[in-house]
Amino acid sequence: MEIEESINKTNNKEGLFKRLFISDSENISTKKRLFNGLLIFLLLVFVFIFSIEKIGYDMRWGAVFKYKHKFILGFKMTFLLSFFSLFTSLIIGSFFTVASRSKFLPLYYLYRFYVAMIRGTPFLVQIYVFFYVIGTAFNLTNRYIMGIIILSLFSGAYVTEIIRSGIEGISKSQLETSDSLGFNTYQKYRYIIIPQVIKKITPPLAGQFLSLVKDSSLLSVIAVNELTKNIQEADSLNFASIENYLLLAGLYMIITIPLSYLSKLLERKFSYEY
């Protein structure tokens, strides 16, 4: 009897543990998701608050609020920079993907040099070179347009490699089948390659676009009036560094979280259920 009871007890215990924490099926209940999500969130908040208490830091949110116009201005600018750069880098990436597959060798080598240089050098150096050397030489001095161009050129190299690897992932036999069925090049891309590539590259592309949003902060070095620069300015006035940068992080997340949500939606849309 006693043994049985104790077995039952442990079973119950295990049962409770399983019910609360273990993912058991494809459809985890909303309650379970909420519970576990909240648990981790609160844990992180606790660690943070504990640390702030421990160092005895006195939060002064009022000092931050005083400069809210700077935050709003910077946020708008970062949003616009990211928005335009995202599209431009997609266009640049598509162009260099075509170049990478081109039989015209100068175009192919343009792609090779472009990707090697952009991916092999620090973004900071690229910003200085493009803005102060090339921009000055060719009289391109609008920092915002230059900011978008520079950010897009930088991100475009990664986008190129993502799209290129997506296309190369389509098996040769599929291309051969399209040939043997009589598809022309346009039809081959439109109906066979692109639908499969979009699905394949959406997750890494989303990752790249999240990086792009954050990388836009480096444009502050050529005095583009974006979010990070505004916060740095506010910081030099109110000295509430931790508050300023926490808010900065939060504001970036307002852009990045919907972006990653959007990519999930796209991924689902292009999953092969027609």
Binding site: S173, Q174, E176, T177, I192, P195, Q196, Y272, Y274
Partner: peptide, 10 residues
């Protein structure tokens, strides 16, 4: 073809 070569996404 030997490997059927149907398009997998449709």
């Amino acid at each position: 073809f030997q490997a059927y070569n149907l398009f997998p996404h449709i």
